[in-house]
Design a protein around this nucleic acid. Sequence first.
DNA 1: CTCTTCTA
DNA 2: TAGAAGAGG
Length: 340
Amino acid sequence: MGVDLGDLIEKQEIELEDLRGKKIAIDALNAIYQFLSIIRQPDGTPLIDSNKNITSHLSGLFYRTTRLMEIGIIPCYVFDGEPPKLKSATVEERKEIRREAEKKWKAALEAGELAEARKYAQAASRVTESMLEESKKLLNALGIPVVQAPSEGEAQAAYICQQGDVYSVGSQDYDALLFGAPRLLRNITITGKRKVPRKNIYVEVKPEMIELDSAIKEIEVTREQLIEMGILIGTDFNEGVKGIGPKKSLAHIKEKSLKEWIKEGKFEFEVDVEVLKKIFLKPEITKNYSLNWQPYDQEKLIEILHEKHDFSKERIENALEKLEKSRGAKDQKSLQEWFR
DNA sequence: CTCTTCTA
DNA sequence: TAGAAGAGG
């Protein structure tokens, strides 16, 4: 979920093609969760192989990643490690929401309410340990680097971006900005047309880019103030103040610091605010990672997707063929360079 | 989500 | 041939 900075932050609509030749560190859990929740049948059933294993995430990861590569984008994926202890409340809360959604899904199915069923099925999506393991194997076979974060993936991705090893972080959540990512790309794993809930209309979802420096300059705050705003609104690590959203948080933080507000007794937090701020300012990351792009291993891909999970061999080969074709194109030197 | 097939 | 609809696993 992450912090809701939505309307405050200045963003720039872009085309995927604008990112040709750019390296991007994608928040793996974020992407996998999106695939798992979106790739479903009308009644909410995910894709499954003959052994009843869910495969929606693999389908999304494979086709989306090869499409990005086809355009000439150079992705790597960052996986989460142990969540900070302060996240446990959020984790529990999400579990409960999923349990409720699961019940409602089944009820809606029995009542024959397809759209309702799908909605609750999506909310019930749960990324399991084995899904993550398989996703890593798939990315390995694709020759895409996988970085294992010690703690929060967004924090690690932000660090990799700060080091200049990638152009941008890719995630739906704004948290990466609080972690100090110089650039954030949203909507790069979900694009195209999306149905507006409860309405029969579709909106075009386009990739958007946020540059941390210009975004905070625009609203005239520092990164530290942005973090304080996040804490007021609520993050994965603390409950926000009731009734305070992006707009009010900005006004409050501009008036005086969080520390002063607390001292005056205006706001109260269960956790020491300095501890919260430290999660974002000095996150647990590793400097020990390597981004090493390799050619894909067709045999391994066939083994994982076709032999193990019943994907059509023809479709896999088609996807790889398209990749080859785009790689042969003249104007994509940057893509070729990455294999040398 | 992306891909293939159907339809005007 | 382009856009909608359905399938994929």
